Computed example of a mutant assay.
Amino acid sequence: MSSKYAGGPTETERCIESLMAVFQRYAGRDGNARSLSKKEFVTFMNTELASFSKNQKDPGVLDRMMKKLDMNCDGQLDFAEFLNLIGGLAEACHEHVLSSPTSGGPKRS
C-alpha cells in the first residue's frame, strides 16, 4: 500500500500494511495463503498474542475463539475473519484504557 502523498504512507496505512504482513506470515503454512487453518491460528495466537494465550486457565479457549471467528464455518479464518479478532481485541483494549482511573476518560460499567 502506498500513499499518493510525497511523505510516504500514513500511520494508518502502515498499520494496515503491518496487519496484512502478520496475517501472511502465518497463513499459507498449511497450503492456503488466503486463510489461517486452526493450526496456523494457534501458532499465531501463541506467538503474536502469547501473553493472552499463556495466561488462559481454560485449555479450550483458542478452539472456541476459532469457532466463533469462523463465520462461514469452513474451518479456516480468512482475512476478514482475522480482522474481527484484531478489532475485538483493539476494542477491548480501548475500553480498558477508557475505564482506567488515570486515562481521564469517562468510566464505563
Rank of each mutant, 00 (worst) to 15 (best):
M1H: 04
K4Y: 06
G8F: 07
E11Y: 00
T12H: 01
E13C: 03
R14C: 00
R14W: 01
R14Q: 05
C15P: 00
C15V: 11
E17A: 14
L19E: 03
L19M: 15
M20K: 13
M20T: 12
M20F: 10
V22M: 10
F23I: 12
Q24P: 00
R25A: 09
R25Y: 05
Y26L: 05
Y26E: 02
A27S: 15
A27D: 08
A27Y: 08
A27F: 07
R29C: 03
D30G: 07
D30Q: 15
G31E: 08
G31L: 09
N32I: 14
S35V: 10
S37E: 05
K38Y: 15
E40P: 07
F41V: 05
T43H: 12
T43R: 14
T43F: 02
F44R: 11
F44E: 10
M45P: 03
N46M: 11
T47D: 10
T47S: 09
L49C: 13
A50H: 11
A50P: 01
S51C: 03
F52A: 02
S53D: 12
K54V: 12
K54H: 10
N55V: 00
Q56T: 02
Q56V: 02
K57F: 06
D58M: 08
D58Q: 10
D58W: 04
D58N: 15
P59I: 12
G60A: 10
V61S: 11
V61D: 04
V61P: 03
L62K: 09
R64A: 08
M65F: 14
M66V: 00
K68W: 00
K68E: 15
L69D: 06
L69Q: 09
D70P: 04
M71Q: 15
C73Q: 15
D74A: 10
D74I: 07
D74T: 06
G75K: 13
G75R: 14
L77F: 05
L77E: 04
A80M: 12
A80W: 02
A80G: 03
E81S: 08
E81C: 06
F82G: 09
F82A: 07
F82N: 07
L83V: 14
L83K: 02
L83F: 06
N84H: 13
N84F: 11
L85F: 15
G88N: 14
L89M: 15
E91Y: 10
H94P: 00
E95R: 13
E95I: 13
E95A: 12
V97A: 05
V97F: 05
V97W: 01
S99L: 00
S99G: 09
S100C: 10
P101L: 02
T102E: 07
S103H: 03
S103I: 06
P106Q: 15
K107C: 04
K107W: 02
R108Q: 03
S109R: 07
